[in-house]
Design a binder for these strands. Structure first.
Lengths: 188, 188
DNA sequence: AAATAGCTGTGATGTAGGTCACACTAATGG
DNA sequence: CCATTAGTGTGACCTACATCACAGCTATTT
């Protein structure tokens, strides 16, 4: 299981065995069951989670009780409530599991320690963060410029695996459209 | 003019006079006129711009020629094409000035040098980046969960200055609605 | 000072997509 | 293995918002 994490890191920064073991001491491994909450809105959420196996979603519940999905995360992805994580405040978001899941999580404190002790991990996290920002900006463009069906097609093209594994109802919520509209979008 | 930059930095990391001067050597000062392009889609755009004075927008032009605004930036804000900047590729976005503008820009190369030489600048940029990510996530929530008028109200509340300085036509484009709809949104 | 370009408002009309309601099927958990 | 919960499809209807078209107004530019 650790190899998945090591692979992920080495895509950006090469590590010796020794270095990787050192990195690993800053993480905690944990298993979650389907439907289990990883982050609960209102609670602190000082951890960033690397998914070694499984599938999760982060979501926001609005004032009329509707849920809106901000992110999915499957193998090799990271997920957290970024606001709760970086600003050490209580989480506005929830994170739960769509499948049984195995993660390695790192607290914000451990991350800061790790980065000062091992310079190149700073570089790793910077790369990840900017990649996340760029992806989110692409989604923003999609939301303000494309209509429902185009957004859905782009989603399928961009995340073919996710669009198989995730129920359509949830994809609709991620795309900001009703599940009925997405359901009618099939003929082709 | 340099004080504006110094203030911005010191909100996150304290600097000695000497350190600030060192930081400054990595930036270039430049003036742009209203309507002038700072980044042109298709060209490289290896700079991140700190706005000391003025107002800019970054925008994307879709295949039918419509423009969609990704970001505004006024005094004390940063603006770049993040993809072109961090990945050193040609810009998908444009950036131009809505007013005469004075910026301090830093190339990605200079930024990397600066960060290795002066550790705490790394921390500064990390903070800025994560704050940007969090803001963009808030916008995403707004786009998928709120309707036009709510988004507009939230925009006005969040950016009272911008909503005065920026023509409504452009705000509409930022919010992903037509200028006519926004124009009809006034009575209250 | 005239000319152009940019910004805003408003009516008429069309449509994408929301909401409600119901029915069927597939998981899954006790 | 039965009972419940989650997921999907589809019709009827409604509405938020887009688009088109035109008109007046205010900055900029020459």
């Amino acid at each position: 299981m650790e190899d998945v994490l090591r692979n992920q890191l080495e895509k950006i920064v090469p590590l010796t065995d020794e270095e990787f073991l050192f990195v690993l001491t800053h993480f905690t491994a944990r298993t979650f069951r389907k439907h289990q909450y990883v982050v609960q809105a209102g609670d602190p959420a000082p951890n960033d989670h690397f998914v070694a196996k499984g599938l999760l979603k982060s979501f926001y519940i609005d004032d009329v009780g509707k849920t809106h999905i901000l992110q999915f995360a499957m193998e090799d992805w990271w997920i957290s409530d970024p606001q709760a994580y970086h600003n050490r405040v209580n989480a506005p978001l929830n994170i739960d599991c769509l499948e049984d899941t195995h993660v390695f999580f790192i607290s914000i404190d451990n991350r800061e320690k790790l980065c000062t002790d091992l310079q190149k991990m700073d570089y790793f996290f910077m790369k990840k963060t900017t990649a996340g920002y760029i992806a989110l900006q692409r989604r923003t463009v999609s939301l303000i410029s494309q209509k429902a069906e185009e957004r859905f097609n782009q989603f399928v093209q961009l995340y073919p695996t996710l669009s198989q594994r995730v129920p359509k109802t949830l994809i609709a919520s991620y795309l900001g459209i009703s599940r009925e509209t997405l359901s009618r979008m099939y003929a082709h």
